[in-house]
Amino acid sequence: MDIKRATEIIKSLGVVGVSYEGNPVWLENINDQNNTVKVKDIKTDKELNVDIKDLKED
Rank of each mutant, 00 (worst) to 15 (best):
K43T: 10
I52Y: 03
D2S: 11
V50G: 06
K11T: 09
R5G: 02
D54H: 08
K38W: 06
D41S: 07
I42V: 13
W26H: 12
G17F: 05
K53C: 07
K56L: 13
D54R: 08
W26K: 05
K46R: 07
K4V: 14
I3S: 13
K56A: 13
D32Q: 10
E57Y: 08
L48K: 08
V50S: 04
W26V: 09
T36A: 03
N23G: 14
L55W: 00
K56E: 15
A6F: 04
K38M: 07
I52M: 06
N49A: 01
S19F: 01
L27H: 11
I52R: 01
N34M: 13
E21S: 15
D2A: 11
L27A: 03
K38I: 10
I30A: 03
K46S: 12
N35Y: 10
V37G: 01
V39N: 00
G22Q: 04
K4A: 09
I52H: 03
N35P: 01
A6E: 03
E47A: 07
L55K: 03
R5C: 04
K43V: 06
V37C: 12
S19Q: 07
I9L: 00
A6Q: 04
V18S: 03
K46L: 14
V39F: 00
N35V: 01
G14E: 13
N34Y: 06
E28D: 12
K40N: 08
D2K: 14
K4I: 14
D2Q: 15
